[in-house]
Amino acid sequence: MATFTTMDGTTIAYQCSGSGAPLLLLSGQGNGMAWWDPVAPDLEGDQLVIRFDYPGTGGSDAPPSGYSTERFADDAAALLNHLGIESCCVYGTSMGGKVAQQLVLRHPSLVRALVMGCTSAGGPNALRMSSGAGARLADPDTKTAALTDLMYSPGWTAAHPGPYATLGEPSTRQARIGHRRASDRHDTWDRLGAIAVPTFILHGSDDLMVPAANASLLAERIPGARLRIIDGGRHAFFEECREEASPAVLEFLAETRIRPRQGAGL
């Protein structure tokens, strides 16, 4: 693990693994780079996999305020600049998909291709989890069981007893609240049409945390976006269904490497 410091003085921890074309991974709410531990080996074969801890997670600083998907996207851009990477492919899941949207909209020259999973555009047009599921998550007595059930199918957890990298990291109260607010306040609905890079959207058919209809809404708003629904997948489909999801992502990324970048004059 290495660190760098952003313009506002925040220390950000990051990690690079593998070699080849750069691929930036963006994790979910309340999680840092460990979110990707089960999946990163699938992606490292011919790619330089880059991931980092959001402020408030892992080895990064935990400022008392200033959390937003825009800020996380700017941190990602600062990391790419720190590494001397002019453009890369980006894969974000859950809140990481929202950060990916902000990254390509705020720093379009840095993103060559975009993959998003189990995410939404946010705002009033997004479809949200049921009130019953939200109540279980809000109850300290049922939170862990509820979150596990939203992430994975019972059959999968029976065969894979954990611990699970996606269930959140120890963090300060300010960071937990900050991440939740960052995700809740995200809204790119009116700007999605400006995304001009190849885009692949994946979602689990049985995702109750971020209902699968959000994937169709994203695909309709982003020009030329490709959509794939993973049958039986829940919110952490990218881990539980990795034997289907990871090859699909790799196939898409391989295609983008042989396609000219839009606006390149080719």
Rank of each mutant, 00 (worst) to 15 (best):
V111L: 10
T93M: 13
T93I: 15
V115C: 14
K98C: 04
L127A: 11
L127Q: 12
G97K: 02
M116S: 02
A135L: 08
S131P: 03
V99Y: 07
S120K: 07
G132P: 00
S120D: 08
R136Q: 12
G123C: 05
V90P: 02
G117R: 09
L105K: 12
M116E: 00
Y91P: 05
I85F: 14
A133S: 10
R106F: 09
A126H: 03
G96Q: 04
A100I: 06
S130M: 01
A100H: 03
G96C: 05
N125M: 06
P124L: 10
L114C: 03
T93K: 03
A126L: 04
G132T: 07
Q102P: 00
G122C: 10
R112P: 03
Y91Q: 10
I85M: 12
C89L: 04
L114H: 03
G132Y: 00
M116N: 00
H107N: 15
S94M: 05
C89M: 08
G96T: 01
G132I: 03
A135S: 14
S120H: 15
G132S: 11
L103D: 01
I85K: 05
V90C: 12
A113P: 04
S94C: 15
L110F: 09
A113F: 02
R136S: 03
A133C: 06
A133H: 10
V104Y: 08
T93W: 02
S130A: 12
R128G: 04
S131Y: 08
L110N: 11
A100C: 07
A126N: 06
G117D: 04
N125H: 06
L114P: 01
A133Q: 09
S120Q: 11
E86M: 13
P108F: 15
A133W: 12
M95I: 02
M95D: 02
G122F: 11
G122E: 10
L105V: 12
R112C: 03
L110W: 05
S120N: 15
A113G: 08
T93H: 10
V115D: 01
A135N: 11
S94T: 11
C88A: 15
A133P: 00
L105T: 12
S120R: 10
S130R: 06
C89F: 00
C118K: 03
C88N: 08
L103V: 10
G134W: 04
L114W: 00
R112N: 08
V115K: 02
G134L: 12
L105P: 11
V115H: 03
G123K: 06
L127H: 13
E86P: 08
G134N: 12
S109A: 13
S130T: 14
Y91W: 14
V99W: 01
H107C: 13
R128E: 13
Y91D: 05
A121P: 01
G123T: 06
V90H: 09
C89D: 13
S87E: 15
L110E: 13
I85T: 14
R136Y: 06
R136G: 01
M116Q: 05
S131I: 09
E86F: 13
G134P: 06
P108L: 14
G123Q: 07
